[in-house]
Structure formats: structure tokens, C-alpha cells
Amino acid sequence: MSIAQAGLIAVLFSVGTFLVLHRSLTRIILGIGLLGNAVNLLILTSGSVPDGVPILGTGSDPADFTDPVPQALVLTAIVIGLAIVAFLLSMAYRSWTIDGNDVVEDDLSDRRIAAEPDVDEDFGEET
């Protein structure tokens, strides 16, 4: 694994994590995209020779070739990543059509506790 690749993976992981921690679903989706790319690069570098080709047809020294398995894995991972981002985008759009924003809200218990003094009001509002 070259330093440049390791550095790139580290940057993608950190920026992705930073974005995922936001409240806005759009930023979370961008973060998940970056994290997905970081992981895909990580899979790719887990092959023996990161800048080699899997099968060249000439030569027989294993050190010349990289392991083809991670390359097959990464293709699957990319496709899954695409499907997930597409689904998240459609959910963000749905969220936007319902209430005009894409902020991820607190869960029910948290909101109930936040409104503790008038619990009954909260009950009524939510049904």
C-alpha cells in the first residue's frame, strides 16, 4: 500500500465521518458516499500489489500480479453503495416534500422527555 493511497483513504474516512455526524440528511448522504469510497479503496489496497494488474498473461512471478479477488469484491461493493445512496436520496426528497427540510429529527422518547412538564400534550399531538 503506497503512502498516497493510505493518505487518501484516511482523508476520505475522516471527512466522511465528519459529514455523517451532521443533522442535515443531505450532508449525511454525502458523508456516506465518501465513506463508501474510502472503504472501496481500502478493499482495493488489500490485494497484494496495489498498482499491479491481476492477470497479464505473461510471466509467472506472483509478485508481478495483484490479487484479483479484491477487485471483484470492490465491484460488488460499488454497486451496493450506488443502490444505498439512491435510496437515501429518495428518502431525503420525501422528507423534503413532507416538511420542507431534510433535518433528521430526534426520536420519539427524546422528544417526549424534552417536553416532560406537559407530557399529556405530547401524547395528544403525536396521534
Binding site: I32, I84, L88, M91, S95, D107
Partner: peptide
Amino acid sequence: IRSGTTYVVLNVV
């Protein structure tokens, strides 16, 4: 959508 967002994002992570 509200609870689904939490569910989906956490499971994607």
C-alpha cells in the same frame, strides 16, 4: 420517514 431515516443511516454505517 422520520424513524426510517435513523434506521437506514445507522444500518448503512
